[in-house]
Design a protein around this nucleic acid. Structure first.
Lengths: 190, 190
DNA sequence: TCTTCGACCAAATCCGTTTTGTGGTCGAAA
DNA sequence: TTTCGACCACAAAACGGATTTGGTCGAAGA
């Protein structure tokens, strides 16, 4: 039954958001999900498996959010801009929510690695497509798309940095200005 | 006598590069510097003081290296490019050398903070001057210099990222391409 | 056959205590 | 002014016993 899985997932999510992965015990999750601890092992292989599922779901939602953001914009520039903007704002939200988790994240990221790689591959394809479309529409100058995507990825990493060190920053403004400069670098000149 | 200070500094540097700050004991340093432990306290206030001095010296050398790099180039673009290139290569060297230290770095950066701030302020001024000169020479389009410098800083952070996660990357190539895009964004159009 | 769970286990974690190691001081002496 | 051995206080490691916790299993209910 999927409803049981959901109960486990949402209980785990809440507890993990508050206490982090390590400090959340399976007993607590079981209590919160209103079932015996052993029952959970009927639905999930182990503790990490639950967490992996949560990450997978969140990642899917994130991707969907990005796809929606792209669709609301028209020009390739706006689409890319919306992509980056949405990505940064979501990450900021995440970093607030999972503040406790940040440190453990590194310890456990071996089993998130797959999701992370999948995401990067999605991001790469999405941005490539957008730039390609921009070139076909005679808006961007023909160029090595992989290089441009890689540069955007580097810019994104730079924008992420303040989140990582919990430094306040106007992400939206920075994203906008950064992307504007990059656009000027690849737009066809009048 | 300055020669004594140097012996302490260089002994500490070697040991710290190998074992990190915490695992390096004052006894070891004293032995390597061929003097009694107490003697070192005649020249330095405490252990951190030695480390702070090392960081200060290294930082000065780094700055000098960057100034030299700028002087070897002629156009504002090349100067900025050389700046970024030299900065990244130096950081890569550092990150190899002080591999052990990376983790502790965060714990101790409170007493490196001052040096770090000074460096950022130097970097900001240096880049501002270069861009300003570029505008005066009619090479860069007049713009909000602070914004451009901030964007370059973000790009640099993005370029630093692979160092931080010990991921191999062609820093020199990435730096070059990233800066070329930014230049296209601020150059006066023909 | 599918689902639930109490009882149970081994390994990890916690926690109070003791031992050791280490940064730093001081006074004497050169 | 410079050097250092002896010494101290305290932080970190080592230890070992008690507790917690992730995970298994077989029985029992649907």
């Amino acid at each position: 039954m999927d409803e049981k899985k959901d109960r486990i997932i949402s209980a785990t999510k809440e507890l993990i958001a508050q206490y982090g992965f390590k400090k959340t015990t399976m007993d607590e999750v079981a209590t919160k999900a209103r079932m015996g601890k052993s029952t959970m092992y009927y639905y999930f292989k182990n503790k990490e498996d639950i967490f992996a599922e949560i990450v997978r779901i969140d990642s899917d939602l994130f991707r969907q959010k990005l796809i929606n953001a792209i669709q609301t914009a028209y020009s390739p520039q706006d689409k890319i801009m919306q992509y980056v903007r949405t990505r940064m704002l979501h990450l900021k939200e995440l970093s607030n929510y999972y503040k406790t988790l940040t440190n453990e994240y590194l310890d456990h990221y071996f089993f998130i690695e797959k999701v992370r790689e999948d995401f990067y591959s999605f991001e790469n394809k999405t941005l490539s497509d957008l730039i390609n479309k921009g070139i076909q529409q005679n808006i961007f100058t023909p160029c090595d798309i992989d290089v441009v995507v890689h540069m955007i990825a580097i810019a994104i990493k730079g924008l992420e940095y303040p989140l990582f060190i919990q430094k306040e920053q106007d992400l939206e403004k920075d994203s906008k200005q950064m992307m504007e400069i990059i656009f000027k670098g690849i737009e066809i000149r009048a």
